[in-house]
């Protein structure tokens, strides 16, 4: 066997071995993780909001994974119980995240159930959290002279929008907030519908 083949086959062998250990074995171990009874699949609107969350890159600054109390202050901060693989059965792509430039959002729907708060926070984060470095997502909203039938009006503090104008949540903002409010992992992750845990 010549050196060319040694390098070629050696390269293939090492990366394949790593694949088997790091991906193959966990896939086998996690195969058939059951959906918890307390977790519903995303509705159409929530799924649309999730796609928007992904495309705007929210997950670069917000994680969706709560660590165990032995490994950080996550639960003490009120971010919820430690996350389990079962919590992610409907997630494609996964949005676990690697940064907490902003807080973890695994349970933002539990912590902050107000639609109005979310609308204002997305429209101008610094109106509700003065220290915030989050971008404003005002392009998801419409500035109108007068609200129309069926519009969701955003309650804004004085001075944020010009006098005589109202801020209305566009369809994308509504979907995004539908998704954020669905982030509630407060059920028992091991309780499976109709079966023993």
């Amino acid at each position: 066997m010549n050196r060319y083949l040694v390098i070629f086959l050696g390269a293939v062998a090492t990366v394949t071995f790593a694949f088997v250990v790091l991906i193959g074995l966990p896939e086998v171990q996690l195969a058939g993780v059951p959906a918890p009874a307390g977790l519903a699949p995303y509705t159409a609107s929530q799924a649309e909001g999730r796609a928007l969350y992904t495309s705007l890159g929210c997950y670069y600054c917000h994680s969706q994974q709560v660590r165990t109390p032995s490994f950080g202050s996550d639960s003490a901060r009120g971010w919820g119980r430690a996350s389990e693989p079962e919590d992610y059965v409907y997630d494609r792509p996964h949005l676990l995240g690697t940064m907490r430039t902003g807080p973890d959002l695994m349970n933002i729907g539990v912590r902050q159930p107000s639609r109005d708060w979310h609308y204002l926070h997305l429209y101008q984060p610094r109106a509700v959290a003065p220290f915030s470095v989050m971008p404003s997502f005002r392009f998801l909203f419409v500035l109108k002279d007068q609200a129309e039938m069926g519009d969701e009006i955003v309650t804004t503090p004085p001075g944020l929008v010009p006098a005589g104008k109202v801020v209305v949540a566009g369809p994308k903002a509504r979907a995004l907030v539908d998704y954020l409010l669905a982030l509630k992992r407060d059920y028992d992750p091991h309780a499976v519908a109709g079966g023993a845990p």
Partner: peptide, 15 residues
């Protein structure tokens, strides 16, 4: 400057 270039999705931080 979190409100800089915030008018369009194109220029949002995540993108």
């Amino acid at each position: 400057f979190p409100d800089w270039l915030a008018g369009q999705a194109l220029w949002t931080f995540g993108r």
